[in-house]
Every structure is written in structure tokens, then in C-alpha cells.
Amino acid sequence: MASQEGSMLKFAPFQSAVDEGFWHRLSSLKLNKLGIDDSPLPITGFYAPCSHSQVSNHLTLLAESLPSESGGESSAAQGNRNRCSVPDLSINSLLIGGDQIWEDIHSGKAVEDSSVLSRFLLISFADLKKWTFHYWFAFPALVLDPPATLVDLRPASQWFSLEEAESVSAACNAWRNSSSTVDVPFFLIDIDPNSRATIRHLKDWETCRGDNHKLLFGFYDPCHLPNNPGWPLRNFLALISSRWDLTSVQFLCYRENRGFADMGSSLVGEAVIAVPQGWKDHHCVPNAVGWELNRGKKVPRCISLAKSMDPTRLAISAA
């Protein structure tokens, strides 16, 4: 694959997928607990690195994404490698979308708990008389102005030496197998001069720079495209440029094949970021983008579950 000299870095948008169980639990929450209360609900989305070379992974909402009716903590199992949790945005404050993410970048929360970088928003209207749900996702991304330029983007297997690639794969598999790190979607890859790779948390950035080590910023990439990184990289770049003042960033789009690290489909890229003016000023909030498109248009989606919810229809189908 030819490297693209100085072109604009383009990202594949995040896509949503909502399990039928989510709508079923939302309906029963609405009917049995919330009533006409329309204040925001805390929900958790799940995603995993791309694991099939032909399809991207999605941000998925399951029944477990919603709080349970009894008010207890949601029962979502921790350490499930196919489900890294992503918190939602709270929309009842004035901080919406990009503001919240910007706030987390500045406060350092994003370095401690990197999943907040992928925060999302779901607006939904449940028409419980017709068992129809209207909804719209947003995956807010801070806009770099001017946009980042891509200097180089190659499959990781071509970028790394053979030894390095093996060591990075092994380190990534270990990261994905440990229940304490499996759902940390943003991390650092530190390769020493002997081609030994270690994966570290973002907060260790200060301690592992220098010493002739190669340092890459890695993230779980839900996207499968061979020439584009996925959406989570956008806010990651914003974090990197505003927190550590880097102008040239080497990143790893971590992808898997059949559940294991795959350096052939993972990408290593180098992007040049010009730190936008005013980013030093905390109060100046950059623009955010990221409404999910529906068949190429900016419209909400709609799903009718009358078939599995309407009691009359259920009675007929059961007869």
C-alpha cells in the first residue's frame, strides 16, 4: 500500500447497533418505573476492536446497557473482551457533546479513564402505543482546525520489523487477555531498541518518553477499512495534541482477526497536527461533529417492534 503523502486524515464514522433487548428493557423501564419522567438515563455502550476483515464493529447497546428496574447496578460482566464499555454523555447539564469531552481532556480524567474519549449520545422517543422507537446517535468528535495531515499509513506488519511485530502482537494479546486491561481502549506501545514491546497506560506517558524508544499511541479500532482509521482516533488526537503538545503522532489502529491481534489488518500511521489556536485556553471549546447518518442523510432512525411487543399480534401468532 502506498503511503499517502501529506493528505488529510479521514476517519471512518462510528456506527451504532441496538439490540432488540435494549428496546424491550427501555419499554418496561418507561412503563414500570420512569413514567413521564424524561430526564436523561445513564447508559453504557459496548464496542470491541474490529475482528473480521470485512465488517467494522459497532457501538452496541444491549439490555444490560440500561440500569435495571430494581435500581441495582447493571449486571454487565466486567472483563468481557467483546464488550469494552463506553459511558454515555449526560445531557441534562449545559455541557453537551464536545464540551464534556473537552472538559475531561483538560481535567486529566481522559488520561485516567480513557473510555470517556468515546462518549456517545442517544436521543430516543419510545412510542409505546405503537411499539415504535425513534432514535438518533451522536459520536461527538472534537474538530482539529486545521485538520490533521497523514504522512504515512501502512499495515502494521509492514511498518514494524518482524521481531517488533511479533512482540507487539504478543503484548497486545496479553493486554486483551488480562481482565484489568481488556476494556482500556486507549494505550501506549513502547518498543525498546531490542524490539521488545510493552503496553502501558496513557498516564505513564511522561515516564516512557525518550531513551531511543519507539512510542506509539494505540487504540481499539472498530473500523475494518485498510486506508482509514476509525472514529475513536479523533478525540485521541485531540487529547494528544492538547495535553502533550505533540505535533507529530505515530498511532496504531489495533485490529484483530478471529479475536487475536492481527498485524496485517492493524494499521500504523503518522499524523501531523498543528495545535489549533486557542486550544491552550480551556474556555475556548472546539467544535464537535458526529451525528450518525441514516442511509447518508441526517435523519433519525426508527424501528417498529410491534411484531414482538403488540399483545394482539402475539396472541394471533401464538394461536
Binding site: 453537551i96 486506508n227 467544535n287 451525528w291
Partner: peptide, 14 residues
């Protein structure tokens, strides 16, 4: 309430 502040930048997507 929730409309984000700016438009969707198609230019940065593949």
C-alpha cells in the same frame, strides 16, 4: 436540547 454545535464534516470521512 441536544443538538451539537456544529455541522457534520463530511470532508474528514472516507
Amino acid at each position: 436540547v441536544a443538538t451539537l454545535q456544529s455541522t457534520y464534516l463530511v470532508a474528514q470521512e472516507p
